[in-house]
Nucleic acid binder design. Structure first.
Length: 792
DNA sequence: GTCCCCCTTTTCACT
DNA sequence: AAAGGGGGAC
């Protein structure tokens, strides 16, 4: 008891010792929130509350794990339910599957699975996607589910103009999911929320089963999650929620910041505790965060304070481009490790978009700095892993149509797209799973005998594998790999590549299976394994035990802290993101995102932006984020790139760097280029970089003729001598493969032997394009198939 | 049916 | 830059 309450501040103690009734903990960043929650659970148990009546819901497995470890420390051996919302619902749904028309071995579709399913539903619903896209429809339906809107509600809510595309697809999609005995991510919450709403008996049963509910990151709950915790705390309103409205960053997936802002209205008897003292950051960092977030209008004001030492000023840094940004930061980390004796794990580099990790990754690798990138989905997204996973899915749930379609011809076994389509249409017509249709292949019309035979052979093979379903996961997986000759297939399909990683991944997957068997000697089931695989999250991959620099998105960084933090790409259009900045709520959420990033830092923080940034293959001028002006600039340290004379050397940063690259001389670029004038005024700096040969002649060939030449060259696989194409012209100098973009227009090249020809696609005449050579960029005006140099 | 090439589209964050 | 889709050749 004493151990539990020792060393807590007054508000912390107040929260920890609260037992019954609703509790709202408004916890600023770094205020010891996890500590309070874990101590509270321990205190509850010490007061005689059965651990089995407590459920703690988090958003990531990582957070749940940490909580479990800390509670275990304080109250060993107590079985409190801890985990993510999605896992909580997945387990309930296992049990009550039949009530929503599923069976207990239902599958969880991941994003790409449900995208496939969505396309099929769109096809069956006979919706034209000319004015919309599957993605759009999917997102509308996803939003609907998060707001607990059923297909019927969406249809009846239709305007006079008739039901929307999404409203017509939604019921079809749901029906197909049921036929496939599957749910998507949103369904996990959606089904449980509706179940609780429509079954008062079940609701009250679960309400008393989970008498005490704790929700972490409550500001990120959506309506479905709100409905679930609300339904479970009516007879026993012992709901305690923890959160910080200023850290609400998941609005885009339906999170409603009002859930926390209105909590006191929903539960008038609530006790509110505010944790405002920050134990994490320096006052410098905290002031920056506070100044910034004050600009948000929709918030509850908190007075953040800390007794920590003043520390160093926050650094605001402007680099020339993304490569210098990455290099500069890597240098700094490298220096700090060597000079100040810091460890790689002390650093984090945060960004808005995963795409920004690339250049950083290179810089880290060149300096042999150990790093970890947090986008853990990577492994499970690999083709070979998805294939094998699909076999397991189909074995576990024979109705899993997405898995069926994925593997029925993988490895190829003469069951082509046409055959699959026939099976699918047959299945759609009879509302049966596709495997069922395959079993019934003789009844499927329009199939060649050969195809039918191939399908039968597949079904036979499937039956053989299905018998092994109850074997250990390792045995099952090995059997699948052998039976399908999967490795031979891999080796066959990667002919040219030195990419042996595919086979290595298969081995790694088998290792994972062995691990799973070991951890679950008794309760290990295929079902459980697949559920875990489906619910792994990005952030789960984070290892605080390993000594590496961490690279991750701002979203993934929530809840973590690092002595030194770099936030890169703080630019207009990136942060705030261009898709979010047009609405007030979107803009405020972006501001909160930066707030979250800033408050991850304990000792030092640097925000940076660039003058130009490569985006989607194109180098563009970048403008610093409007949020910069909201920071206490006066007390910050502003640095403009002192290395502005450097320029990006394409070769040195080429993506194809071998892992074991010998570090090139850092200053090669400088040595070669005594050119360049002017200091920090970086405009047009790429152009000034080198003397470039001028090309002032243009290709004179009409489109038809050029086309014909391309055809001829393709056939001959040989360059046709003496052709006056633009390519011929350009190839007088050193030319590397080139692609040009402008308003969707692409200039493509083909190389044949020594020669090269350029073909131009695009609708309108007279567009301009930038073509990148290994010695720089040049702009061209495109007139049909002709290239005319307008800017050398 | 399968493979390969070309073109078009994509457009963030995450369970 | 990268991936998905469509169409042609074998």
């Amino acid at each position: 008891m004493d151990a539990i309450l020792k060393g807590l501040t007054e508000p912390q103690t107040e929260a920890v010792t609260h037992l019954d009734g609703p509790l709202l903990i408004l916890a600023g960043p770094g205020s010891g929130k996890t500590r309070v929650v874990t101590h509270r659970i321990a205190h509850m148990i010490s007061q005689g509350i059965p651990a089995s009546q407590i459920a703690a819901l988090t958003f990531t497995n990582k957070a749940a794990e940490e909580m479990r470890a800390r509670v275990e420390n304080l109250a060993p051996g107590k079985a409190v339910w801890m985990g993510t919302f999605h896992r909580f619902c997945a387990q309930l749904l296992r049990r009550y599957a039949s009530m929503v028309g599923l069976s207990e071995n239902y599958s969880i579709y991941d994003t790409s699975d449900s995208k496939q399913a969505m396309k099929r539903a769109i096809e069956v619903a006979k919706i034209s996607t000319s004015h919309t896209s599957p993605e759009q429809i999917a997102s509308t339906i996803s939003n609907a589910k998060n707001r607990l809107v059923t297909p019927e509600m969406m249809l009846s809510g239709a305007k006079h103009s008739g039901p929307t595309m999404a409203a017509r697809v939604y019921p079809v999609y749901q029906q197909q999911l049921l036929t496939a005995n599957a749910v998507d991510f949103d369904d996990l919450l959606f089904h449980i929320a509706l179940l609780l709403k429509e079954n008062p008996d079940l609701r009250s049963e679960l309400d008393s089963r989970f008498r005490y509910i704790l929700v972490d990151e409550y500001q990120d709950t959506n309506l479905a999650q709100y409905a679930i915790v609300r339904a479970l705390s009516i007879d026993h309103p012992n709901l305690s929620v923890t959160g910080d409205p200023d850290q609400s960053i998941y609005g885009w997936r339906g999170a409603d910041i009002n859930n926390i802002l209105d909590f006191e209205k929903d539960y008038p008897a609530v006790k509110t505790v505010r944790l405002e003292q920050n134990y994490r950051s320096t006052p410098n960092i905290l002031r920056a965060a506070d100044q910034l977030i004050r600009n948000n209008r929709r918030r509850k004001h908190k007075e953040l304070f800390t007794h920590n030492d003043e520390g160093d000023p926050v650094v605001l840094r402007i680099y020339e481009n993304g490569y210098q940004e990455a290099d500069g930061i890597a240098d700094e980390i490298s220096d700090a490790i060597q000079v100040e004796g810091l460890r790689p794990r002390d650093f984090a580099i945060l960004y808005r978009m995963n795409a920004l990790s690339r250049s950083v990754e290179h810089s880290m690798r060149r300096r042999r700095l150990a790093y970890q990138i947090i986008n853990g989905l990577e492994f499970y997204q690999r083709k070979e892993i998805k294939d094998l996973l699909a076999y397991l899915h189909l074995i576990n749930n024979p109705k899993h149509d997405v898995a069926f379609q994925r593997i029925v011809n993988t490895p190829t076994r003469a069951i082509g797209a046409k055959t699959v389509k026939r099976l699918r249409e047959y299945a759609d017509r009879h509302h049966i799973p596709m495997l069922e249709a395959a079993r019934n292949v003789d009844a499927v019309e329009g199939l060649a005998k050969r195809s039918a035979t191939a399908v039968k052979k597949f079904v036979e093979m499937y039956e053989r594998m299905a018998i092994k379903a109850t074997a250990t996961l390792e045995d099952l997986l090995r059997y699948v790999v052998d039976e399908t000759k999967y490795e031979a297939y891999l080796l066959r399909s990667v002919v040219d590549q030195q990419d042996s990683s595919a086979v290595a991944n298969v081995d790694e997957f088998i290792t994972a299976a062995v691990e799973f068997d070991r951890y679950h000697p008794d309760d290990g089931s295929l079902e459980l394994f697949l559920e875990q695989a489906a619910l792994v999250a990005d952030t789960d991959a984070f290892e605080d035990t390993s000594d590496r620099v961490t690279l991750m998105t701002l979203h993934a960084a929530k809840g973590l802290e690092f002595p030194r933090v770099f936030i890169i790409g703080v630019e207009d259009g990136l942060l705030p993101h261009s898709r979010s900045k047009d609405t007030d709520s979107g803009f405020e959420e972006e501001r909160r995102l930066l707030f979250v990033g800033i408050t991850r830092g304990k000792e030092r923080l640097q925000l940076s932006c660039c003058k130009t940034r490569n985006f989607r293959g194109e180098s563009r001028p970048a403008i610093s984020s409007p949020f910069f002006n909201e920071l206490p600039l006066g007390e910050m340290k502003k640095i403009e790139s002192e290395r502005s004379l450097d320029f990006f050397d394409d070769d040195a940063y080429d993506d194809s760097y071998p892992e074991s690259w010998d570090l090139p001389d850092e200053d090669t670029a400088n040595d070669e280029t005594p050119t360049d004038q002017g200091g920090a005024g970086g405009n047009g700096f790429v152009k000034e970089k080198k003397e470039k040969p001028m090309f002032d002649e243009a290709c004179q060939l009409p489109e038809e003729e050029l086309k014909e030449i391309v055809q001829r060259k393709k056939k001959a696989k040989q360059p046709v001598a003496g052709i006056q194409t633009a390519a011929d012209l350009l190839s007088s100098g050193p030319v590397t493969p080139l692609t040009a973009y402008r308003e969707g227009t692409q200039v493509r090249h083909d190389e044949y032997g020594d020669g090269m020809i350029v073909s131009v696609t695009g609708r309108g005449p007279k567009r301009t394009a930038t073509i990148r050579f290994d010695d720089g960029e040049r702009n061209f005006r495109l007139a049909f198939a002709q290239l005319e140099v307008i800017d050398g």
